[in-house]
Design a protein around this nucleic acid. Structure first.
Length: 253
DNA sequence: AATCCGTGGCC
DNA sequence: TGGCCAAGGAT
């Protein structure tokens, strides 16, 4: 849930989720439609599907217990470098190298003297972060939590509180006078208005709200572009987010 | 390796 | 007001 989504938005949804599905086995027994409706507007609904598949994999491969080995975690659906490391460290107290957007920003500022990290995580960043993580399990888990928290609370992207920073004397970015972001030109975002992503979101919202299959004709107002509508529906079908019946579309159940 | 994938709040 | 950003992953 936390992948690319702010903690404050995730927390209430997570509380409801854990109340409804306390264990991997509970979640594994749900239908994708139930999971997608509970996910609601958290965004990137493919994550909901992967979390569901992850719960099923935990049941099938690990007897319902979340694995502690990072390699086993990494093999689960929707679990990548960051999530595997975070679960190993924060759930199991193991040594791992946690590199999320907060850690990247802290290391980029202190060590490189730049405002923000490059758009994509590099192997070099990961290696350098690993050289800083203490060797033993308990201290490394503490390190990971500390650096992440520093980035989340003090060394924030918008208005960093450098005056309250415990490493302000060692920060290359602060020493350089907090220069502006170098990557601002490279960082250009994909346009939003009229994109397939926007239309996908509209389709999913429509299907979450429906208690019967929605005929294709009723989905016409998600976009006036018939070609785009067909492309988006095909993509959603391919992703397993939508199911096609004779009388329309619905969440997969 | 570059792209694609949602949503909402903030300054 | 609108660009920016948020505990990334899969292909």
């Amino acid at each position: 849930m936390l992948q690319q989504t702010p903690v404050v938005r995730v927390q209430p949804r997570w509380e409801e989720w854990m109340d409804r599905w306390p264990t991997p086995a509970d979640l594994a027994a749900a239908t994708p439609a139930e999971v997608l409706r509970a996910w609601d507007r958290l965004g990137y609904p493919r994550r909901a599907l992967r979390l569901h598949a992850c719960a099923q994999a935990v049941v099938d491969r690990h007897d319902g217990a979340v694995p502690t080995e990072e390699a086993a975690l990494l093999a689960l659906p929707g679990v990548g470098t960051y999530t595997a490391a975070a679960v190993a460290a924060f759930a199991h107290g193991r040594r791992s190298v946690v590199v999320d957007t907060n850690v990247r920003r802290v290391l980029t500022r202190t060590l490189d003297g730049e405002a923000l990290p490059p758009p994509h995580l590099s192997a070099g960043e990961l290696r350098r972060a690993g050289e800083l993580v203490p060797e033993d399990d308990a201290t490394s888990a503490r390190w990971n939590a500390a650096v992440m928290e520093l980035g989340a609370v003090v060394c924030t992207a918008r208005s960093p509180r450098c005056e309250a920073c415990p490493v302000r004397e060692q920060c290359g970015w602060l020493a350089a006078g907090r220069p502006a972001d170098l990557h601002v030109l490279v960082r250009r975002r994909q346009a939003w208005e009229g994109t397939d992503r926007q239309v996908r979101g509209r389709v999913m919202a429509r299907l979450r709200a429906a208690d019967h299959p929605v005929p294709g004709a009723v989905l016409e107002d998600v976009t006036l572009d018939a070609e785009q509508r067909a492309r988006v529906l095909a993509g959603l079908l391919l992703d397993g987010l939508v199911e096609k019946l004779d009388d329309g579309y619905r969440l997969p159940g």
